[in-house]
Write a protein that binds this DNA or RNA. Structure first.
Lengths: 211, 211
DNA sequence: ACGAATCTAACGAACGTTAGATAGATTCCC
DNA sequence: GGGAATCTATCTAACGTTCGTTAGATTCGT
């Protein structure tokens, strides 16, 4: 589950690369610039990440791991569905507002037709994981009162949850881009109540136990 | 209102540049590649668009004009609000599904922190125009029965319409990116009913006359 | 003959990548 | 324990490619 253990210098490189990639996309990162940031030469960066596609993949995978770790469990039975979705929204808000840079996979996803295959695969995997987390977060709320989880008795709900999850993730990506280019963070923060309205109208009013 | 009248060759260049830009972003466009596509040399492309930033701005402005022309009037009193929003959704669907490439300003918006100023201004202008169209499309439905338009008597509704419009545009951008990287166009087409639900719950049930 | 559109040729800069040397630490074996 | 071998992380130097851009000549229709 946990990714590879990078050396300290490798992590510095990944930090610089992630920042640059979130500002300007994959092509905006250059080995020479990264090297200058972390205080070594360009050829030494190749020692840690032989090819640029390797570097791109590593950045995306570490980003995916970090974000999923922040989100935590999507199926804690003591938690409201709304609380989970709010946490998801807050992750996106933190990226844009505090880190002052959009979501990595928002940027890479937009140029995914032109990415090296191994990088666009990693981006695809990010979306799959995020959607899976969200769909689970939506579903386990419905099943909270019973224990029908292992019986697999709600296939149609799982499908509906996936559709809504894709919509939620997509909406957060897009409102982030729009907030960025308008320099208006409210576009992103306002997405939260809109999404919560969709969620509560999709879930058939089964409040869970209190946390 | 109508942009400049480009020569036939200039339009060919803009076509090639727009396609390339929608695939891979601003940096994916090179004068030599464009030249090869339209059958001239790179230096001749500079005759039509001296600097690359000029080319970028021209592509974005022509794209904005084309899209607004497709959308038509947002305040035709014989039209339902839902019809207008569906037309907006169909524009985005057409881009991804038939042209097989995402919205231009979706791609450029994601890398807007790294764009030449004149290009990111044009992208910003695109979003402003789209949001203005959508807000107007949402508002004039409410005011259809009376003629309070010029009296400016609904400032709070205008504001609420802008908020919803930003959310709609953002959602379309983001579900397009998500649909692209998942290679699942349904993510975009499914956004339509979700957005229509938000719209109809925001508009206080004032059906217009039949078209 | 003039202007529009294209060409050839080249400039300097930046890019990813590689080969090979080097310094310092660690490990291994006698 | 001490010298030898190996490994890690960096360096210098350079390669070939691509890029945006420019100067100046050329072609061609009006």
């Amino acid at each position: 589950m946990a990714g590879p253990n990078y050396s300290e210098k490798a992590n510095e490189i990944l930090n610089a690369a992630e920042l640059r990639m979130r500002q300007g996309g994959f092509d905006a990162v250059s080995y020479r610039d990264l090297a200058a940031v972390v205080g070594i030469k360009a050829s030494s960066v190749h020692y840690h990440f032989p090819q640029k596609a390797d570097l791109g993949r590593a950045v995306v995978e570490r980003y995916t791991t970090k974000l999923l770790a922040f989100l935590g469990a999507p199926d804690d039975p003591t938690e409201f569905v709304e609380t989970r979705i709010k946490r998801l929204c807050s992750a996106y808000q933190h990226a844009l507002i505090h880190e002052e840079v959009p979501c990595l996979c928002c940027v890479l996803g937009a140029e995914s037709l032109d990415l090296p295959a191994v990088v666009s695969q990693a981006v695809n995997h990010f979306f799959v994981q995020m959607i899976h987390w969200t769909a689970t977060a939506l579903l386990t709320g419905c099943e909270a009162q019973g224990d029908r989880d292992s019986s697999g008795s709600l296939p149609s709900d799982r499908q509906a949850a996936e559709v809504l999850a894709k919509h939620i993730i997509g909406t957060l990506q897009g409102t982030m881009i729009t907030a960025l280019t308008l320099q208006d963070p409210d576009v992103l923060t306002n997405a939260e109540p809109f999404l919560l309205r969709l969620v509560s109208s999709a879930i058939p009013t089964t409040p869970e136990r209190q946390p």
